[in-house]
């Protein structure tokens, strides 16, 4: 057990130091992208939109934008790191070691969560230049950010496990993740949508994450907050188990 723990800490350390070592690649780009969102949607267009659900538009979208960067970055971190290890072959360093699959998953998960948190913090500070943020339930914010980062780290890991070529790790972020995030209520409340599209929207898991975040910050949500939190925890557990099982079976990594 002690052996496993030391092994896991080594992996966590390796994965997090990677995030910090290449901070120009990991922390700056999301900062720039989000600044642009704030300038365009908040300052330029936001003024014309006025209020959303009784909040200035900027304040309404800020939690969602933070969440959006957390999602893309934790996913991107793990999918990139694991796929690289696979392509260069150094995933074998882990596979030949006695470190068990559960701890390998935790190691990559930690890397993704820390990247998510770091980016989330950077984006939050940027947001402060444009609007005020008074976090209503800070503990819940913390929980939601970590769990969401976790869910998408695990999803990234699973993507990387199956991926055989670079295209395979680009497809999901652009064809699944991006649309679901944009349609997940970052920029609007789903109550603006026709009945049919509201129902469709409720099938989108990201909607629940963004609304949990918004609820924890400004106290409003399109969906029941209990359901939303349960949903996040549920996804986390399921994806964690899937990742462990895939690694144990050696899918995509052992012939």
């Amino acid at each position: 057990m002690r052996t496993q723990f030391i092994g896991m800490i080594s992996l966590v350390r390796k994965e997090t130091s990677r995030v910090l070592r290449i901070w120009v690649q990991t922390l700056i780009p999301p900062g720039i992208t989000m600044s642009l969102y704030f300038i365009i949607f908040g300052t330029l267009i936001g003024k014309r939109i006025g209020e959303m659900e009784g909040y200035p538009y900027m304040e309404y979208i800020a939690p969602g934008l933070v969440m959006m960067s957390v999602i893309t970055n934790s996913y991107g971190n793990v999918v990139g790191s694991f796929f690289n290890a696979k392509i260069q072959g150094h995933i074998e360093e882990l596979l030949v070691s006695p470190l068990s699959e559960v701890f390998i998953v935790i190691g990559y998960l930690a890397g993704g969560i820390i990247r998510g948190l770091a980016v989330g913090t950077v984006v939050t500070f940027i947001a402060l230049f444009f609007t005020q943020i008074n976090i209503k339930y800070p503990l819940m914010t913390f929980f939601v950010v970590i769990m969401t980062a976790g869910v998408f780290s695990l999803a990234g890991l699973i993507n990387a496990i199956f991926a055989k070529k670079f295209d395979d790790i680009a497809v999901i972020p652009s064809f699944v993740l991006a649309p679901l995030t944009y349609l997940g209520g970052v920029f609007y409340t789903v109550s603006l949508l026709p009945e049919f599209w509201q129902t469709i929207s409720r099938l989108n898991p990201i909607l629940y994450m963004i609304n949990s975040m918004r609820y924890s910050v400004i106290g409003i949500s399109d969906v029941s907050i209990q359901n939303a939190l349960m949903m996040i925890v549920f996804f986390f557990i399921i994806l964690f188990l899937i990742a462990v099982i895939l690694l144990r079976k050696g899918i995509g990594i052992r012939q």
């Binding site: 002690r2 052996t3 496993q4 030391i6 092994g7 800490i9 080594s10 992996l11 350390r13 390796k14 360093e93 882990l94 070691s97 006695p98 470190l99």
Partner: peptide, 11 residues
């Protein structure tokens, strides 16, 4: 050092 770590050897 990392490889040693994966084998459970302290840093």
């Amino acid at each position: 050092v990392n490889q040693a770590g994966f084998y459970g050897i302290p840093r």
